[in-house]
Simulated assay, not measured.
Amino acid sequence: MNNKYMGYYKSPIGILEIVCDKESVLSCNFVDKEGEIGQVNLILESAITQLDEYFKGERKEFDLKVALHGTEFQKNVWNGLLNIPYGTTASYKDIAISINNEKAVRAVGNANNKNKISIIVPCHRVIGKNGALTGYAGGLDKKQWLLDHENRINLNAGDVFPVSKS
């Protein structure tokens, strides 16, 4: 039986609950309040440290093993999300094309909605084809904050690339 380790990170936009096992991050989601903290392991400590660095603008890429649990299609979508560069966005159609399933735009949206590893698997970087913000489990206000944060960090670092791939 795999032991699970749970911890919390107080981000500028809410509390994140991080769940890990001995090898990888299992989930990272916004919650209303902290629960009980159990045992901590190196994966959980690293996830909390890297989230802190991300929110401080010191980290653009996560170096964490993640366990993606879902259908093969969902895993393909979530792996596609990992390829969206920091500070940029992609449309649901962009993701569908990237996983060689151009007509699966709606299914990509459904898979994106079931992502259990927020921020680390950057579902917040997916927007509507017309550039509009669309659903985000944490709320559109959090999604907008995350996109603005990444864009602001890139501008401060002198990186010049578009906010959208579309």
Rank of each mutant, 00 (worst) to 15 (best):
Cys123Lys: 08
Asn112Asp: 11
Gly139Lys: 10
Gly87Asn: 08
Cys28Ala: 15
Asp94Thr: 10
Gly7Leu: 06
Ile120Thr: 00
Ala107Trp: 10
Glu53Arg: 14
Leu64Lys: 08
Leu133Tyr: 11
Asn151Glu: 14
Ala90Val: 06
His124Pro: 01
Gly70Lys: 11
Leu42Asp: 15
Trp78Ala: 01
Ile117Asn: 01
Gly139Pro: 04
Pro85Val: 07
Gly109Trp: 01
Lys129Gly: 03
Asn83Pro: 01
Glu102Ile: 14
Phe30Ala: 04
Ser118His: 07
Gly128Phe: 00
Asn79Thr: 13
Asp52Gly: 14
Met6Pro: 00
Asn79Cys: 12
Lys129Ile: 10
Asn83Lys: 15
Asp94Arg: 09
Ile97Leu: 15
Asp52Leu: 01
Thr134Cys: 06
Lys114Phe: 01
Ala137Pro: 02
Val126Phe: 00
Asp141Gln: 12
Ile43Cys: 06
Gln74Val: 03
Leu42Cys: 05
Ala111Trp: 04
Thr134Phe: 06
Leu51Val: 05
Val31Phe: 08
Trp145Pro: 00
Val126Arg: 02
Glu102Trp: 07
Gly38Ser: 09
Val25Tyr: 07
Leu64Ile: 05
Ile99His: 05
Lys75Asn: 14
Glu45Cys: 01
Lys142Gly: 01
Glu34Ser: 12
Cys20Gly: 03
Tyr86Lys: 04
Trp78Arg: 03
Lys114Trp: 08
Lys60Asp: 13
His149Val: 09
Arg125Met: 04
Gly135Phe: 13
Ala111Phe: 08
Ala47Arg: 03
Ser118Asn: 10
Ile127Trp: 03
Lys114Met: 10
Ile95His: 03
Ala137Arg: 14
Gly139Phe: 10
Arg59Met: 14
Lys93Cys: 06
Asp32Cys: 07
Gly139Glu: 06
Cys28Asp: 02
Phe73Leu: 12
Ala104Thr: 05
Asn41Gly: 02
Glu34Trp: 02
Glu61Gln: 14
Asn113Gln: 14
Asp21Asn: 15
Leu81Arg: 04
Asp63Gly: 09
Ile37Leu: 13
Val77Met: 03
Ile37Ala: 10
Trp145Glu: 06
Glu45Phe: 04
Thr89Arg: 04
Ile84Ala: 03
